[in-house]
């Protein structure tokens, strides 16, 4: 039971990832596909962050040595646990995944905007953002160009 609860985050991330992938693969609308891609990307971020969680840890902002916050943090924990896994008497979560995902989220919205801009231009060129319609239209167009030549 405990094993399932402590691995539930991975299961949830896997399902979210597949939900995103399913939208990308099954939907023919380009905008909907971009939303699916965004879900896929967010789920990757969630996986990283959950790997960096340290049980009973706190956000990686150093607490002053003699502050009441530090006392409160230490009061609820087993001293041996703090001594082994804490830094200067406080247990922190791993900051490295936070750094990686923080920048990835901002880059993600920028690339999402690029994808949407391409979708807008596709709509202007073909009059549609449905992938299968675009395929038919572009085939028609190339056939016309072939007959003219």
């Amino acid at each position: 039971m405990s094993f399932i609860l402590l691995h539930f985050n991975y299961v949830a991330v896997a399902i979210l990832m597949m939900a995103g992938l399913f939208v990308v693969v099954s939907s023919s609308n380009l905008i909907k596909r971009m939303i699916g891609l965004a879900i896929f990307q967010t789920s990757t971020g969630l996986l990283y962050i959950s790997l960096g969680k340290v049980s009973s840890g706190t956000a990686a902002i150093t607490v002053d040595a003699a502050s009441p916050e530090k006392q409160a943090l230490a009061n609820h924990l087993d001293p041996a646990y703090v001594a082994q896994y804490g830094v200067a008497g406080v247990v922190y979560s791993n900051p490295l995944p936070h750094v990686l995902i923080l920048t990835a989220i901002v880059v993600g919205v920028a690339t999402l905007a690029v994808g949407l801009a391409i979708a807008v231009r596709v709509r202007e060129a073909f009059g549609s953002v449905e992938a299968d319609e675009i395929e038919v239209l572009s085939r028609l167009e190339s056939a016309q160009a072939g007959s003219q030549a």
Binding site: M34, A38, T58, A59, I101, L102, I105
Partner: peptide, 25 residues
Amino acid sequence: MDAADVAFTEAVIGAGVSTIVLLGA
């Protein structure tokens, strides 16, 4: 998950900017 900085970014980006960009699209 103790990722205060990331949560901050996700709230501003996901609920703010990407919604506006998607609505524009």
